[in-house]
Amino acid sequence: MGFPSPAKDYEEKSLSLDEMCISRPAATFFMHSRHGAPRTGVLAGALLVIDRSVKPIHGSIVVVEFAGDLVICRYVVSPRRRFDNLELPGQTIPIPDDDDVDGLQCWGVVTWVINNMREGEMDDCPAM
């Protein structure tokens, strides 16, 4: 006779990247990064999941439309509002108080990053 298996009632749900990464399909876009920003977890060629319906908060990784190009930046609020360009370290893009700047727009917030770890640029240096 024996005892019934305790795992009989456990059924694992299949993994769906769509369900995990996309909460608002109509506002979600995908983009490959041109340059890496390893300190943020974005390697060159990474697949970025961008949600245009999410409002950025301090520290968010965002895609900014600047001078007709899409650029990966960090949104910074304090001490002054700005976008720190992650593709060109050291370059900042100030955000004026009136939010009316020709050619400058926060296009969306990066919600997920998918890196190819076989071709990644990461090394074993813990001081990245």
Rank of each mutant, 00 (worst) to 15 (best):
G2H: 13
G2R: 13
P4Q: 04
A7M: 13
A7T: 15
D9N: 13
E11R: 15
E12L: 15
K13E: 15
S14W: 12
D18E: 13
E19R: 12
I22R: 05
I22Y: 06
I22M: 05
I22C: 12
S23Q: 10
A26D: 04
A27G: 10
A27S: 05
A27F: 15
F29M: 10
F29G: 00
F30D: 09
M31S: 03
H32K: 00
S33A: 04
S33T: 01
R34N: 10
H35E: 11
G36C: 05
G36I: 00
A37T: 11
A37F: 08
R39W: 01
R39Y: 11
R39K: 15
T40D: 12
G41I: 06
A44I: 00
G45C: 10
G45Q: 05
L47H: 08
V49P: 08
D51M: 12
D51Q: 07
R52T: 03
R52I: 01
R52L: 09
V54M: 09
K55S: 14
P56I: 10
P56R: 07
I57L: 11
H58T: 09
I61V: 15
V63I: 00
V64E: 06
V64C: 05
E65C: 02
F66N: 02
F66V: 04
G68N: 01
D69I: 04
D69E: 12
D69H: 11
L70I: 02
V71R: 07
C73G: 05
V77D: 05
V77L: 13
V77A: 08
R80W: 06
R80I: 03
R81W: 04
F83C: 01
N85V: 09
N85K: 05
Q91D: 01
I93K: 08
I93N: 06
I95A: 05
D98Q: 12
D102E: 14
V109E: 06
V109R: 07
V109K: 08
V110A: 00
T111W: 06
I114G: 08
N115E: 03
N116S: 08
M117V: 12
M117Q: 06
R118H: 04
R118W: 01
G120C: 00
E121I: 01
M122I: 09
D123E: 11
D123Y: 07
C125H: 14
A127E: 12
M128T: 09
